[in-house]
Design a protein around this nucleic acid. Structure first.
Lengths: 233, 233
DNA sequence: TTTCTAACGGAGCGAAATGCTCCGCAGACT
DNA sequence: AGTCTGCGGAGCATTTCGCTCCGTTAGAAA
């Protein structure tokens, strides 16, 4: 009946359950980022390699899962801001914060406004906001961030760059062969935007310039007869 | 039986049909931009103030409507590029092109890869690509565009900025009171990114810095009891 | 080994959404 | 007045989705 051993450690069963829980949260992030607002529980469970039944054993409802995810992502925001403040260089701290957050911000947009916010979440959010404000204030004070860019400007820029239509579409089409190039392209665009935030001149862009295939190949409809269907925009 | 008058002008009925057609195309743009890939024909018809029946009288299928829309938007791309080339200042031409295209680019992302492309569309696309390449080449030659930014970089940056998660979410929540502030915020972010593309220093950002309400108020779930529910990210 | 049971996966159910058809009606021409 | 083009939208068939329920599996106890 008891599921603890004598010294109180978890049983193997409970260890698997915990792994499943982490897999579910990671899958929820990934599926939310690609499928957007209509991410389905079935897709999340499948992505996690877990049955739907197991998902509903841990979370009473889809909403509860997303609430938990929100809580965790807020922790990530806070950690990123603290890491940024720990960097001795104000600009490196800010740009590192921006790039880090962009990497995981995509998950939250679709669920904004669909969840009741618990007091704990509101508190975490407030602390994260204070931390990022400190990062930005420090950059302003050091004169490395353009003076006319506000905290909200930076936060909205992060949100704008967090969701990449390019990467999402490629993921939806299963074009894993292009995902590396798409990631590189997104990194370059982020660097361009960050340079726009700088008070002074730009460093060179990272990586190689992206090839045109990111544009052309996305338009091919899977069951098409035409082997070459180049089209942009 | 004939629906032309003696001199060949259209009847009033046909004039209304034509107005409806334009309304449908405009509505399709708007709904695609806000609802994304799962924009429904019902939503498009309603947004256009037109019955579903009328929609299906002009277009045999949803796909046909989107194909027509794609054709029109490609015309807009081409016109924007030609306008840019007509500007004597290479940087003004490029930045005007970018801002113009960003304003209407949001419609196309969701339908990429879902439509068979007609030869006419492929040809239009090719011409639009050539025109924008000319705009960018000219900016490169004039030394006003950073040398390490490629044509694809610029095109992907446009796509990235074309869809605004902020504006979309506010539209979905019906917060028309914030839409002006959101538009301003988006303009500023676009300006930041454009400055990142410049070879030299930045001009000041346009408009007023956006207020925090763009972040805080979006998280309020419509039927919430809590009057104030500030939360960002 | 045998028994017990916690945790698992997924078929399937009712509800909701969606593309499209079909039909009754309004009003513009003759 | 009569005709008939074009209109709006209820309704149908299909798909999707959140969630429940149950038979199966594999570690723990005896």
């Amino acid at each position: 009946m008891t599921r603890m051993t004598a010294d109180g450690r978890k049983t193997a069963r409970r260890a698997e359950a915990e792994r499943n829980d982490h897999a579910l949260l990671a899958a929820a992030r990934a599926v939310l980022a690609t499928d957007g607002a209509h991410a389905s529980v079935a897709a999340i469970a499948k992505h996690a390699g877990v049955g739907i039944g197991s998902l509903y054993r841990r979370y009473p409802t889809k909403e509860a899962l997303f609430q938990r995810l929100l809580d965790i992502v807020l922790d990530d925001y806070l950690t990123a801001a603290e890491t940024a403040l720990a960097d001795p260089d104000p600009w490196n701290g800010l740009s590192g914060y921006v790039t880090t957050v962009i990497a995981f911000a995509g998950s939250l947009g679709p669920i904004a406004g669909t969840l009741p916010l618990t007091p704990a979440i509101l508190d975490k959010n407030r602390r994260a906001d204070e931390a990022v404000a400190a990062v930005i204030d420090r950059a302003h004070a050091a004169g490395v961030l353009r003076a006319d860019a506000s905290v909200i400007d930076v936060e909205l820029l992060i949100e704008q760059l967090g969701k990449s239509p390019l990467i999402e579409q490629l993921a939806k089409q299963g074009r894993t062969d292009l995902s590396e190039a798409a990631q590189n392209a997104h990194t370059r665009i982020t660097a361009i935007a960050l340079d726009g935030l700088r008070a002074t001149g730009h460093p060179p862009l990272p990586g190689e310039p992206p090839g045109p295939e990111l544009f052309t190949e996305r338009w091919e409809v899977p069951g098409s007869s035409e082997g070459t269907a180049p089209a942009g925009h």
